[in-house]
Design a protein around this nucleic acid. Structure first.
Ligand SMILES: [Mn+2]
Ligand SMILES: [Mn+2]
Ligand SMILES: [Mn+2]
Ligand SMILES: [Mn+2]
Lengths: 216, 216
DNA sequence: CCATACAGTTAAGTTAACTTAACTTGTCGC
DNA sequence: GCGACAAGTTAAGTTAACTTAACTGTATGG
C-alpha cells in the first residue's frame, strides 16, 4: 500500500496522529483531531472507524486510536512529504517560514514520488524543515537530535532553539515577529514569560513557550 | 468566484471543455468527456447538470455544453495553472516534456495563487508550455501566434512545429522518440505519413500527424 | 462513592461523485 | 422517410465525508 492509495482525509489523519506523539506528547484524542481538522467529534469518530476498516489503525472506543505498522509507515511517508515540501517552498520559492505550512498541507496530497525525489535532490537531502522538525528519510528512518524540552518547562538559563511548532499559523507569526526561529539563542528568566530572543527582551505567554523546543 | 471554490472535478471539466475548442475543433461531447476522464457517459451527464446548477455552463440535452462567462474565466485560470506548472516542472525540476502533464494534472488543483506567482516569476513569465501551448496571462488574456494547421491537413512542404498535443501520454512519448517537439522543422511528402523530422526520415500515422500543429 | 461535565458514540440525513442498467434521442445510410 | 446504431439521459444504488441531534461512557473532585 502506498500513500497515493489513500484519500486526502486518510492521509491527513495518519500524519496528524503520528506527529502528535512525536515529541513525547500523549496520543491525540477524538476532540483533538476534531479541532485540528475543524470538524465535529462525530465525524472524527466515524472516520476513525473507516481507517480501522482499512487496517491503518486500531479503533478502541473511548480510547485514542493506535496506528498499525502499515498506518505508521504511511503516516511517516506523509510527514516526509509535508516537511520536504515546506523546506522546498522556503528555500527555492522565497516563502516565509510562516507561509509554508498551508501550502504544504495541500501539496503533500498531490505531488508524485518523482517530484519528491527531485526536490530532495535540489535541496541536498535536508534533515530538518523550516520549523526545525526532522524530515524522515525515504526508508522511514529519520535523524535524531539531542534531547529537547519545551521552553515552558525548562529551568532559567540560556538555550538554543531547535524547533518551533507550526500547527497554529497565528501563533507562528507572533513568534516569528519576535525573532524566534530554530538556531537562535534564548535566555529564560523564570519570571512569567520574560525571556530574551537573540538578545532582545520579549514576553511570551505559556502557550507560546510551549510551542518552542530547546536543546537540553 | 475563484477556482479554489470549485471541486477538483469541476476544475477539470471546465479546463477540458475550454481547451477542447482552443484550436478550432468542435466542442467536446459527452462521450469525449467520458473518455478523457475514464468514466461513463452517465456520470458526465450528471456532472454537467451539476455544473449548470452552479452557473458554470449551460447544459443543453443532446448538445455540447456551453461555458458561461464565469465558467470560461475559471476554465482559463485552470489552463494557466496547468501550463505554468508544466513549464516549471520541465525547466526547474528536470522533467521530460512527456512527464510533466500527469504531475501538472494533480498539482493544478493544489497550488495557491502565491505559488503560481512565484513560479511565473522564476520562469520569467513564459508564453508557452513545453508542448507549445500558450499560457494564458493572469488577467485571462493570452498570447496569439501565427495561424496553425494540423500536420495531417497541410500540403507537402517544410514547416516549423509550433505545438504537439499532450493529452495522450503514449502518443506524446512516441512523438518525442522521433524528435518531434516545438521548434523543429518537419518536411511532409504527402505520401501516407512519410515525413522528415529535423532531417531524419520517419513515418507517422494519421492520429500522430493530427497531434502536431505547424505554422502556416 | 457518585453526580456531573465533558468526551465520545450512534443515528439519521445530505452531497458530490461514482457505478450499472435500462431507456430515449439524434443522425446517417439507404 | 425510416430503421439501426451510437450517443445521451434517467434511474437506482454505493461510498466517503460531512452535518446536526440525541444519547452514552469516563473520569474526577467533592
Ligand atoms: Mn493535508
Ligand atoms: Mn513544519
Ligand atoms: Mn486535473
Ligand atoms: Mn501542455
Amino acid at each position: 500500500m502506498e500513500v497515493g492509495d489513500l484519500s486526502r482525509v486518510a492521509q491527513d489523519y495518519l500524519k496528524v496522529i503520528w506527529s502528535a506523539s512525536e515529541w513525547g506528547e500523549p496520543p491525540i484524542t477524538t476532540k483533538g483531531l476534531a479541532e485540528r481538522f475543524s470538524t465535529t467529534r462525530a465525524n472524527v469518530s466515524e472516520t476513525l472507524h473507516r481507517l480501522d476498516d482499512q487496517g491503518l489503525l486500531i479503533y478502541r472506543p473511548y480510547r485514542p486510536a493506535l496506528l498499525t505498522p502499515i498506518g505508521r509507515r504511511l503516516a511517516i511517508a506523509m510527514v516526509r512529504r509535508h516537511r520536504l515540501l515546506e523546506a522546498y517552498l522556503a528555500r527555492t520559492l522565497g516563502y516565509a517560514w510562516n507561509e509554508v505550512h498551508d501550502e504544504a498541507e495541500r501539496l503533500e496530497h498531490a505531488v508524485s514520488e518523482l517530484f519528491l525525489a527531485r526536490i530532495d535532490e535540489v535541496l541536498g537531502h535536508p534533515a530538518i524543515d523550516p520549523h526545525g522538525d526532522p524530515i524522515p528519510n525515504a526508508d522511514g528512518s529519520w535523524p535524531q537530535f539531542g534531547d529537547t524540552a519545551e521552553l515552558s518547562e525548562v529551568p532559567p538559563g540560556s538555550y538554543v532553539v531547535l524547533r518551533v511548532s507550526d500547527t497554529d499559523a497565528e501563533q507562528l507569526l507572533q513568534l516569528a515577529e519576535v525573532g524566534m526561529r530554530p538556531g537562535v539563542t534564548v535566555t529564560t528568566s523564570g519570571k512569567d514569560g520574560a525571556i530574551t530572543v537573540a538578545g532582545k527582551a520579549v514576553r511570551l505567554d505559556p502557550e507560546q513557550l510551549g510551542a518552542v523546543r530547546v536543546l537540553v
